[in-house]
Amino acid sequence: MVIVKRKELSFAEQLYIPEILRGLSITFRKMFEPKVTRQYPEEALIKTDVTRGQPRLVVNEDNSIACVSCGLCEAACPAYAITIDGGETEREIEREPKRFDIDMLRCILCGFCEEACPKDAIYMSDELELADYSREALIYDMDKLKRPKKALQDRIDYVNRINDRWQTPSST
């Protein structure tokens, strides 16, 4: 057993008023220093190059989805947030997802899916907001996840830049 001794208060501290005044003086001083807090959500978050928002799917210029439902992001996802069902298409690349769900409540924004994707089809967008009235609504399906390539271009460029630093020429 440990007995913790209370600190003996001095007479000035016991009076209470001087301590309040000391606290208030700090408050007044800080009022004239630059502000570091932001009025979120009225004021948007500052996004930088490395900001890793929620994953989104790339839609090509010809309106087709870039994903081929290979399932590698699903396998890489440590939070089991991704569910994919594949299917056949008439396009030259024969395979595409018929269902692609990301449970945004499970997603931990780690970016493993982005790293795993062999088709450059999933990127961490700069979208960060996530609020809704039900859990079901936060399981995003393909329609909610699709983004035109242009909208994700900043991130794509950033990832390419990072990859160039350490990648060796690949076989394909």
Binding site: S69, G71, E74, G86, G87, E88, E94, R95
Partner: peptide, 9 residues
């Protein structure tokens, strides 16, 4: 079966 599932799943 074509393209319906990944075998590891």
């Amino acid at each position: 079966f074509r393209f319906q599932a990944r075998v590891w799943n």
